[in-house]
């Protein structure tokens, strides 16, 4: 143990994890329009063994990636291979990135540079696009706004003070994961 557990932070961490949210290394700082190291990420990193134990005792598994943490439901993995949340996150992100790059003709920088970002307006009409309709249906998604809000709620996207969305650390990692599989 490197230091005392911060109980206030541990409660915040618990709240986020049990909502199925991801804790990223960096969060968005509204005041300075910049990225700031996430206190909660630091808290877990510095007390990783204790946090691992805490979630292990609750039937979960704390999963550590270099730039983000999330909690895995161990019971789910034993009983079924249904991974609706993973699927929803991956398909949502795939849809957004493809739509922005290919249909909107924007550069990837738009999705990761905090001076740019995207809005729900950029994804308008995706639900009427014949290339996406069947995918939205299979992914149980309605429209661009819903996708963006969903990914924001999971911390896959960060929201800037200009109400624009950019990829978080975990979002970038998922993009990399998709790239690795399809390069």
């Amino acid at each position: 143990m490197n230091k005392q557990i911060d109980f206030k932070k541990s409660q915040l961490i618990f709240n986020q994890f049990t909502k199925g949210e991801i804790i990223n290394e960096y969060v968005y700082d509204d005041k300075n329009n910049s990225l700031l190291r996430n206190d909660l990420f630091t808290e877990i990193s510095e007390n990783i063994e204790i946090y691992k134990m805490q979630y292990e005792m609750c039937g979960f598994q704390l999963v550590h990636n270099p730039t983000f943490f999330y909690v895995k439901d161990k019971n789910s993995s034993k009983t079924s291979d249904k991974q609706s949340k993973k699927i929803k996150i991956y398909s949502s992100l795939l849809i957004i990135v493809r739509y922005i790059l290919s249909d909107k003709g924007k550069l990837f920088d738009v999705l990761k540079n905090l001076h740019y970002g995207i809005t729900a307006e950029d994804l308008k009409d995706i639900e009427n696009n014949s290339n996406y309709v069947h995918i939205l249906k299979a992914s149980n998604l309605k429209n661009g706004e819903e996708i963006l809000n969903y990914l924001y709620s999971k911390n896959i996207f960060l929201k800037t003070n200009k109400d624009k969305y950019i990829l978080s650390d975990s979002g970038k990692e998922i993009v990399n994961d998709i790239m690795e599989q399809y390069s």
């Binding site: 994890f17 049990t18 909502k19 199925g20 949210e21 991801i22 979960f60 999963v63 990636n65 999330y70 909690v71 895995k72 439901d73 161990k74 789910s76 993995s77 991974q83 609706s84 949340k85 993973k86 996150i89 991956y90 709620s153 975990s170 990692e173 998922i174 994961d177 998709i178 599989q181």
Partner: peptide
């Protein structure tokens, strides 16, 4: 199954 991250992530 192709992807590596977020296996069995806790659902809200």
């Amino acid at each position: 199954k192709k992807f590596n991250h977020l296996d069995f992530i806790k659902a809200k």
